[in-house]
Computed example of a mutant assay.
Amino acid sequence: MSAVPEHFTLPYLTEHGTQIALNLLAALLILLVGVWLAARLANIAQRALQRARVDATLIGFLRNLIYGVLVAVLVVMALTKAGIPSAPLVAALGTAGLAIGLALQGSLSNLAWGVLLIVFRPFRVGDYVTVGGVDGTVESISLMHTQLVLPDNREAFVPNAKIGGDAIVNFNRRGTRRFELKVGIGYKDDIGKAMHIVRQLFDADPRILKQPAPGVWTDSLGDSAVNLVLRAYTRYGDVWAAQTDFLRALKERFDAEGISLPFPQRELTVIQGGPLPGGQRPQSP
Rank of each mutant, 00 (worst) to 15 (best):
W36T: 08
L74T: 07
I30E: 00
N23A: 10
R63W: 02
Q19N: 13
A27Y: 01
A45V: 13
I84Q: 07
G68C: 10
L24Y: 00
L24A: 04
A56H: 09
G83F: 05
A21I: 08
L28R: 13
I30P: 00
L32E: 11
D55L: 06
L24P: 01
V35K: 00
N64V: 09
G83H: 06
Y12M: 03
L25S: 10
L29A: 15
R51P: 01
A26K: 09
V69I: 15
M77T: 03
G34A: 13
G68V: 03
L31W: 07
V73A: 14
D55F: 02
N23P: 02
A56I: 08
L24I: 06
A42E: 07
G34E: 04
A39H: 11
T57Y: 02
R51M: 10
A27K: 00
K81A: 04
Y67Q: 09
A21E: 07
W36D: 12
Q50E: 10
I59H: 01
L31A: 15
A27W: 01
M77D: 02
L70D: 03
A39D: 10
D55I: 02
L41K: 04
L37I: 14
F61R: 03
A38V: 14
I44P: 01
T18M: 12
H16P: 01
A39R: 14
I20L: 13
L70K: 07
A39P: 01
V69E: 08
L62G: 00
Y12F: 11
A26Q: 09
A27L: 00
L79N: 02
Y67L: 13
L58V: 04
A38S: 15
T57G: 13
E15Y: 05
P85H: 13
I30L: 09
G83S: 09
R63Y: 05
V71R: 04
G34I: 04
H16C: 04
G68T: 12
A82R: 00
G17E: 07
R47H: 15
L31H: 07
I44R: 15
H16W: 12
S86C: 05
L41Q: 03
I30M: 08
N43D: 14
T18A: 13
I20R: 08
A56C: 08
A26G: 06
A21G: 11
V33F: 12
V73Q: 14
L74N: 04
I59K: 01
K81L: 09
A42W: 04
L28T: 15
L22F: 09
T18I: 14
V76F: 03
L28K: 11
N23Y: 03
R47C: 06
K81Y: 04
R47G: 06
T57P: 02
